[in-house]
Each structure stands twice: as structure tokens, then as C-alpha cells.
């Protein structure tokens, strides 16, 4: 799924054949035995129409199918044409939280003074908000980093994860303090020591130290349970 800003950027870039007036589009691939796929197309078309789609179009041939995906695969570089820089975020949420999360992302973006284009793996809840910023503008990069962190914490809060496929690496090391408790992170370190007692392999990545989490100082949000749920945080 792509929202308006993402699909328009992708269309201008890749000429995939997306309707630029739409507020969002959803691509749904069905593969398998020819007869089954025919049946599924009918089933899914009906489902999408009932769920409020204004139009459901089947790629006519292999060329059009590839073009539809080229738009999706090109969405990231395409967004690079509507803003000087973009920052791709990678969180996962339960699919039922998507309407709420999209609204919150919009609100968070506004409060950080930045734009966001959304690309989403609809089938598995993997969210890729693309934060638009300008590295040449003082403070913009830091604001993008902060907004990205806030979006990931939102994912944890609705019961999701801070990374669906990009990994923690260095980028999300602080958000690991939100996703896991001290004891859980300590268990990860203990597992690491079973392989690498001196901690030489890829230090400073993936698992934050207790010192980092203390310094980072964020509240620990655990599987949707926050310590003071009545407090307004958005």
C-alpha cells in the first residue's frame, strides 16, 4: 500500500500507471495454479470493493504487472525527487492498528515540522514511512532522526516491533531500550557471550548496553503496556 504522496512520487518517477488522484493504492499479488488464481482474483476484488475501494484494476498482462511493481520498488528513489533527502523507517504493527498508526504518524510528522510519505507491506504489517527532510537545513537531520525514533516507539506501543526487515544495526539501537527490558537485553548479551566472550564481533550494534538505555532515558514500552497509560504522549 502507498499513500498519496508516495504513489504520486512513484508515478512521476516510474510511470507505473497509478491514478494520481487517489488517496491511497493497494497492490495485491496472487500467484499459484492458473485456475486458483482466477478464483482468488474474483474473491479479492469483491472484498476490496466491499471494503471501500473506488476502483479495482487487474494488471492486463505481464508487462503491466511488472510496471505496477516497478512503481512500488521505485517508490524510495522516487521520493528522493520530491525532497532533498529522505529517511526510510521500518517498523511492524498488527494490521488492525494501521488506521490509528497512520493518523498518529501524520500528527508526529506535523509536530516535528516534516513531511512523510507512507509505503506499507499490507500483508504483514511492515510499515515504511519515508521522512522527507533537507540535510542542508540546520536541525533537519536531527528532527528526522527524532521523528523516526518516535514512529518506532509508536510501533512498539501498539504491540509491534521496531524493525520488520532492516535490522537494528546502529540506527535503532536506542529504540531497543523501548522494545526490550533490561533483563531481556541482558539475556541477548549472555547469548552473545556464549559465541563471542570478548564482545569483539560488531560492537555497539543491535543490543544496547544498560548504560546506553539509562542515558537514552526513554520509558520502556512493553507489548502495548506503558507505565502510565493515562498520560497524553502524542
Amino acid at each position: 500500500m502507498m499513500d498519496g504522496p508516495a504513489l504520486r512520487a512513484a508515478e512521476d518517477f516510474a510511470h507505473a500507471g497509478y491514478p494520481k488522484s487517489a488517496a491511497a493504492i493497494l497492490l495485491c499479488e496472487l500467484d499459484g495454479a492458473a485456475h486458483d488464481v482466477e478464483e482468488e482474483i474474483a474473491r479479492v476484488t469483491a472484498l476490496l470493493t466491499t471494503s471501500g475501494a473506488s476502483e479495482v484494476r487487474l494488471a492486463r498482462d505481464e508487462d503491466e504487472r511488472k510496471r505496477f511493481w516497478a512503481g512500488r520498488k521505485g517508490a524510495f528513489p522516487a521520493v528522493g525527487r520530491i525532497a532533498p533527502d529522505y529517511y526510510c523507517i521500518d517498523g511492524t504493527i498488527p494490521r488492525r492498528s494501521l488506521p490509528k498508526v497512520l493518523t498518529e504518524i501524520g500528527r508526529l510528522a506535523e509536530s516535528h515540522g516534516l513531511g512523510v510519505a507512507n509505503v506499507f507491506h499490507a500483508g504483514d504489517g511492515n510499515l515504511h514511512p519515508l521522512i522527507l527532510y533537507d540535510a542542508g537545513k540546520p536541525g533537519d537531520m536531527e528532527a528526522a532522526e527524532a521523528l523516526g525514533g518516535a514512529i518506532l516507539e509508536l510501533c512498539v506501543e501498539v504491540g509491534g516491533a521496531i524493525t520488520g526487515e532492516h535490522g537494528v544495526g546502529r540506527e535503532k539501537i536506542n529504540q531497543m531500550c523501548s522494545q526490550f527490558s533490561d533483563a531481556e537485553r541482558e539475556a541477548f548479551f549472555a547469548l552473545k557471550r556464549a559465541f563471542d566472550p570478548k564482545g569483539l564481533l560488531n560492537p555497539g550494534k543491535t543490543i544496547p548496553t544498560l548504560a546506553r538505555c539509562a542515558e537514552y532515558g526513554h520509558m520502556h514500552v512493553h507489548a502495548g503496556q506503558v507505565s502510565h497509560p493515562h498520560l497524553e504522549r502524542f
Binding site: 511492524t92 504491540g159 533483563a183 539475556a187 552473545k192 543490543i207
Partner: peptide, 22 residues
């Protein structure tokens, strides 16, 4: 765990690569 501490690994979503797959 051996300390009697309840630890949560993974979650309820299919795509989740945060931390080791304990």
C-alpha cells in the same frame, strides 16, 4: 529464565527482526 525473570522474545507480528530470534 533461570533467575525467575519473565522475558518476552519476539512478539505477535510476522516481520520482526529486533534482537536475536530467541
Amino acid at each position: 529464565d533461570g533467575q525467575g525473570e519473565a522475558l518476552r522474545f519476539g512478539g505477535t507480528v510476522f516481520k520482526n527482526v529486533a534482537g536475536f530470534d530467541a
